[in-house]
Amino acid sequence: MQVSVAVHADLDELVRLESQLFRDDAGVHDPQVDVSWPTRHGRDDFARLIDLDSALVLVARRESVVAGHLVGYVTAPSATRFGRRTAEIRSLYVDSASRAGGVGQALVGRFKAWARANDATSISVTSYVANHGARAFYARLGFAERSVVFQAVLED
Score class of each variant (00 low, 15 high):
150 F>A: 11
112 K>C: 13
6 A>E: 06
117 A>E: 15
88 E>K: 09
83 G>F: 05
13 E>H: 06
90 R>D: 15
29 H>E: 06
67 A>T: 15
141 L>D: 09
66 V>G: 07
78 S>I: 04
67 A>Q: 14
9 A>C: 06
134 A>N: 01
92 L>Q: 03
95 D>V: 10
142 G>L: 05
112 K>E: 15
122 S>I: 00
110 R>S: 12
131 N>R: 13
63 E>F: 08
81 R>F: 05
149 V>C: 09
132 H>D: 14
26 A>G: 03
121 T>H: 13
115 A>D: 08
117 A>K: 11
124 S>P: 00
18 E>Y: 08
120 A>K: 00
39 T>M: 15
31 P>I: 07
81 R>K: 09
55 A>Q: 00
81 R>L: 11
5 V>Q: 15
51 D>K: 12
129 V>L: 12
52 L>A: 14
121 T>G: 14
38 P>K: 09
154 L>P: 04
128 Y>C: 07
127 S>K: 07
133 G>I: 11
65 V>F: 01
18 E>F: 08
125 V>K: 04
33 V>I: 14
75 T>W: 00
60 A>D: 01
3 V>T: 13
91 S>L: 05
120 A>V: 02
19 S>Y: 11
88 E>P: 01
34 D>M: 07
103 V>P: 00
23 R>P: 04
149 V>P: 00
94 V>D: 07
129 V>I: 09
76 A>D: 10
42 G>Q: 02
25 D>N: 14
52 L>M: 09
110 R>W: 01
58 L>P: 01
155 E>P: 00
43 R>C: 10
58 L>Y: 03
154 L>Y: 03
155 E>S: 10
81 R>N: 05
154 L>R: 06
5 V>D: 11
70 L>C: 05
29 H>V: 04
59 V>K: 06
94 V>A: 07
98 S>L: 12
152 A>Y: 03
20 Q>C: 11
98 S>K: 02
62 R>A: 11
21 L>W: 10
48 R>G: 01
91 S>T: 11
12 D>L: 09
53 D>G: 06
120 A>Y: 01
100 A>D: 14
126 T>R: 09
20 Q>L: 15
8 H>P: 04
114 W>R: 03
98 S>A: 15
150 F>K: 04
86 T>L: 14
81 R>C: 08
127 S>D: 09
46 F>C: 10
100 A>R: 14
22 F>A: 15
99 R>T: 10
99 R>P: 07
97 A>T: 14
67 A>L: 05
89 I>T: 11
25 D>G: 10
128 Y>F: 15
65 V>R: 10
84 R>P: 00
107 L>I: 13
29 H>D: 05
54 S>P: 05
91 S>Y: 02
52 L>E: 11
106 A>D: 12
121 T>L: 10
64 S>D: 15
151 Q>L: 07
117 A>D: 15
155 E>F: 00
21 L>S: 10
103 V>M: 04
15 V>N: 08
89 I>P: 05
56 L>A: 04
60 A>L: 02
57 V>G: 06
63 E>M: 10
64 S>G: 12
68 G>F: 03
46 F>P: 05
87 A>G: 13
130 A>N: 06
19 S>M: 12
